[in-house]
Amino acid sequence: MAVSYDGQQDGGPEYGVVVHCWLEPEIGGYDCYVAFFGHEQPIGKPAGKPYLLRYAATSLKVMPS
């Protein structure tokens, strides 16, 4: 699932793909590992390797397909 994270202060939103989600009882919601590609959503095969970050699912916006 393609997502964006708008919480970045510099350069605008980050775009990525959800790798894994799980229920986290401590926060009463879902946590996700997201492979981020940067400030532009890649079309087709990305030019570079993504970086993996962990965010609460409520912090992410699902991108239209």
Rank of each mutant, 00 (worst) to 15 (best):
A2I: 04
A2T: 09
V3A: 06
V3L: 05
V3Q: 03
V3F: 11
S4G: 02
Y5G: 00
Y5S: 03
Y5M: 02
G7C: 01
Q9S: 14
Q9A: 12
Q9R: 14
D10H: 14
D10V: 09
D10A: 14
D10N: 14
D10M: 13
G11S: 05
G11C: 01
G11I: 07
G11Q: 09
G12E: 01
P13W: 06
P13N: 01
E14G: 08
E14M: 06
E14D: 11
Y15W: 02
Y15H: 09
G16Q: 04
V17H: 10
V17C: 03
V17D: 13
V18P: 05
V18H: 09
V19W: 12
H20Q: 07
W22M: 14
W22I: 13
W22S: 14
L23G: 09
L23F: 12
E24D: 06
E24L: 01
E26M: 01
E26P: 00
I27Y: 09
I27E: 10
G28K: 03
G28Q: 04
G28Y: 06
G29P: 01
G29N: 12
G29T: 07
Y30T: 08
Y30N: 10
D31E: 12
D31G: 10
C32S: 06
C32W: 00
Y33S: 10
A35N: 05
A35H: 05
F36P: 02
F36D: 01
F37L: 03
F37N: 07
F37S: 03
G38Q: 07
H39A: 08
H39V: 12
E40A: 13
E40V: 14
E40C: 11
I43S: 15
I43F: 14
K45F: 09
P46Q: 01
A47H: 15
A47T: 13
A47R: 14
P50V: 01
Y51Q: 00
Y51S: 08
Y51V: 06
L52V: 13
L53N: 02
L53K: 04
L53G: 08
L53V: 03
R54N: 12
A57L: 15
A57S: 00
T58N: 15
T58C: 14
T58E: 15
S59Y: 11
L60R: 03
L60Q: 08
K61W: 07
K61C: 12
V62N: 15
V62T: 10
V62H: 11
M63R: 12
P64C: 03
S65G: 15
S65Q: 15
